[in-house]
Design a protein around this nucleic acid. Sequence first.
DNA 1: GCGACAG
DNA 2: ATCTTGTCGC
Length: 237
Amino acid sequence: MKIHPIHPLNINPDEFISIQEKLAHKVDVSQPLYLHDIQTVAGVDVAYSSENGKELGFSHIAVFDLATMEVIERAESRGHITVPYMPGYLAFRELPLIIEAAKKLRNTPDLFLFDGNGILHPRKMGIATHASFFLGTPTIGVAKTYLKVGDSELNEPAQEKGSKTDIVVNGETIGRVLRTSEGVKPVYISPGNQIDMESSTRITLLLTGSESRLPIPVRVADIATRVMRQSWRKEYD
DNA sequence: GCGACAG
DNA sequence: ATCTTGTCGC
């Protein structure tokens, strides 16, 4: 697929905040995304391995045909991770590998789901949001744990599948605590870009099966990423 | 200085 | 995220 190089992928930490602030005002989470406009959905994830003080990253993108929910394409990339993990700046750490993998895709997915946040972020620039500018497609962020934004208070949704509570900051709903399966820990979702909160919620639920609290595309990418690491260690030792 | 803290 | 065995529960 075609990538939009809006800025270099290797940036000095000094510029992290200014880049996020610059892109933040271009974010659009006001438009609905309808199912009949979606043919393919991609799940993205990254796994790590520490080797002699260095960190190696493995990224995987799994593309699904929404109608059949079969994987129609996969793309991967592996490389050294240079940026340390800093809450609020995950994109600068993982995007280099993710974009490298995305470039290899023959298909251009209609939607990407990320392991991490969308606009549920101090500057509304979580990894899902940031990635959409490079991908040029709608994105959704699905996080397994909560990143506190502002003075938002968290309310636990009911136990039934589909139950949800809004995460409101300054009168604006920037995310939702969503129970994707009965009785399991909820996930924290938020639109990344080019899609609204309602569509993000509906699509996340549609893509979540009973085998995991995470939407299938993200879960499949997560598993694939561990397989990559496993086979790498096997031929390296 | 003291907590908070996506992956 | 990653390091890790058994074990409580449906």
